[in-house]
């Protein structure tokens, strides 16, 4: 039957990844996580549970956290995608990244890119959140090492410092920055 023939059509999509325009031909079935990791070499987003429960593959699409493991790359067409690779600016880490290091909020590191991007989405809505607000926002992003307290401390501290003007939120694809990978 004609309509049962596996379609071979490729789609052209244009999007912005970490502030840089990307044009690519994709298959409709291509997942955003595979597109970022395998096509662009941006391996910060991790495949872990693969069923959008754990948050390790979290990236921001138009500033909103999504599970790249269960999002079609097609859905990113015309949008801004931010991965952990897009946070550092001019060789300087983002305040959230600094805070995670200072508070020892990183152990094995597998959840960290998703944690930081999830936290960034919160800080852009609630500039200096309380620990309770951080817990409510971060509760669906899983870490099996830290016990969470150091992560909560790091996010609260980064928010406080960013709001006090001690550490600006320079990252986030607001300006153009070259990703490490090749499109």
């Amino acid at each position: 039957m004609e309509i049962d023939r596996p379609p071979q059509a490729r789609l052209r999509i244009g999007l912005t990844v970490n502030g840089r325009p990307v044009e690519a031909g994709i298959e409709p079935r291509e997942l955003l996580l595979d597109f970022l990791r395998n096509r662009l070499g941006l391996t910060g987003a991790k495949r872990s549970c693969d069923v959008q429960v754990c948050g390790a593959c979290t990236v921001l699409v138009d500033d909103v956290p999504v599970s790249a493991c269960c999002t079609l790359a097609y859905e990113a067409r015309g949008r801004r995608v931010l991965t952990i690779e897009g946070l550092a600016r001019d060789g300087r880490l983002h305040p959230l990244q600094d805070a995670f290091i200072e508070h020892a909020a990183v152990q094995c590191g597998f959840c960290t890119p998703g944690m930081i991007l999830t936290a960034l989405a919160l800080l852009r809505e609630v500039p200096a959140p309380t620990p309770v607000q951080v817990k409510a926002h971060m509760k669906d992003t899983l870490c099996r090492c830290t016990g969470y307290w150091k992560i909560i401390d790091a996010v609260v501290d980064a928010g406080r410092r960013m709001q006090a003007g001690e550490a600006p939120d320079a990252g986030g694809g607001a300006r153009e920055v070259a990703p490490r990978g090749k499109p």
């Binding site: 959008q52 429960v53 948050g55 979290t58 909103v64 956290p65 999504v66 599970s67 269960c70 999002t71 859905e75 999830t118 926002h137 669906d140």
Partner: peptide
Amino acid sequence: VGNLRVRAA
């Protein structure tokens, strides 16, 4: 519903 990423999509 679900978690914040599920709710976004």
